[in-house]
Design a protein around this nucleic acid. Sequence first.
DNA 1: ACCTGAACACCGTTCAAGT
DNA 2: ACCTGAACACCGTTCAAGT
Lengths: 252, 252
Amino acid sequence: MRPKVPLISKRKVCEVALAIIDEEGIDALSIRRLARRLGVNGASLYHHFENKEDIVVGAALLALSSVRTPETSSEDWRVWFLRNTQHLKAALEQHPDLIPALIRRNALRLGLSEIDSTFALLEEQGLPIGLAWTLMETLESFVIGVVMRERTADGADDAEETYDAFPHLRRATTERMLSNDEAFVLGCQAIIDGIAQAAESAPRRPAAKRAGAKKVGRATTVTPRRASVSNTAKTAKTAKRSSAPARRRAAG
Amino acid sequence: MRPKVPLISKRKVCEVALAIIDEEGIDALSIRRLARRLGVNGASLYHHFENKEDIVVGAALLALSSVRTPETSSEDWRVWFLRNTQHLKAALEQHPDLIPALIRRNALRLGLSEIDSTFALLEEQGLPIGLAWTLMETLESFVIGVVMRERTADGADDAEETYDAFPHLRRATTERMLSNDEAFVLGCQAIIDGIAQAAESAPRRPAAKRAGAKKVGRATTVTPRRASVSNTAKTAKTAKRSSAPARRRAAG
DNA sequence: ACCTGAACACCGTTCAAGT
DNA sequence: ACCTGAACACCGTTCAAGT
């Protein structure tokens, strides 16, 4: 039977899905379970979502909605970019199960318009626009990696005797100088400074396009490369990899 | 019936599992499918493995076996550590589906004895042992994040007109200065240099244990500014150090 | 000890049928 | 248009039974 006002709202579905994921982990999320908790039949959800992945992505977007508007203050970009990165990390840490889904759907990135205005501000503050993508993507990658790594089991090396055979390892542990948080900030800061450094040895403006082959890294002479990076680019190397499309389900 | 020589070897199972994962993705790996390809009954696998996760981890270890022995040459650690990191990235890129399993089981790390000897060499080469974990974990995290991010769908912004509304975004794309590979090396190098920098402002040896440890980072910040992220692994630099512009900290 | 078929308790998804 | 029960084609895992 059909009620005049729909029983199901996409929003509500995503909220409950997110609750299940946060409470019991993403493996506990099944269509039937989600539907039961919504007081609804599982099949009904397919009138509102394409498939389960769609629901997970919806939950993920919900989880990240708080950090999807970047703070772009009037401070130096090195400062607010670091702070934004820390916010992203904090948000991802609250829902680490969702990271793969966010990556799959490219949903980690801000919307195009936010990116555009962010890039505008970066350029205004003196960063060569040609480094904006690198800055954003590199820090995003770092955050993803750090948060994913935090989830390691880590439950094997508790034996005190384990260290006896490995004195350096023990000392590395006991004399550890940086906490995880400090290490994270150090990494972010290093990347930011690295980009800033690259900026200094780059042409101020796209005036002399070819002139800017400076060395940024030892093994990496920077050749200005403009092949549209969007989707078609990424070159053959990554294209090969990303050619794994939606898996066919009942193909067998 | 039981043959005198077991039909199933753990090794063979992991190899076939890895083949399925690489050929069709991890979602295509099911016990029944794996068993059929092995010419065996699915239930039989449970005499050799605890569960499916165990099999996946076995496949993952197989995939990483080539990079699990670090190259520790006599070069400066900044050099061989970068190279090892690149090797790890290359290995993970060949089996990105396995990264979550590797993380879950903490299998990405080297064995304890390898870590111990790696740390020994690092200390021998002058790195304060208290920074060894941070160095290793930070770069590992970065690699994980970069490889995971490479898997993004990325298929929505193909419309040429999309960029019309976002001029900065377009220019950021067309004037992009660093390729993905270059950006990766830049990030690694920046982290390595950042650690090296932290090492310089640290006590050489655990002499005054509590003396310097505290002020290394204060929740957000790591020691004095490092403006000179050296381009090359060889550091040497230092010249520009004083030119560091008054940098504000992201205090909160 | 090792392998098997059958069964258990689940899945995601589709679809004709109801209103 | 929206919801439902039933069914389809799968899952991972267990277990008594075979040898």
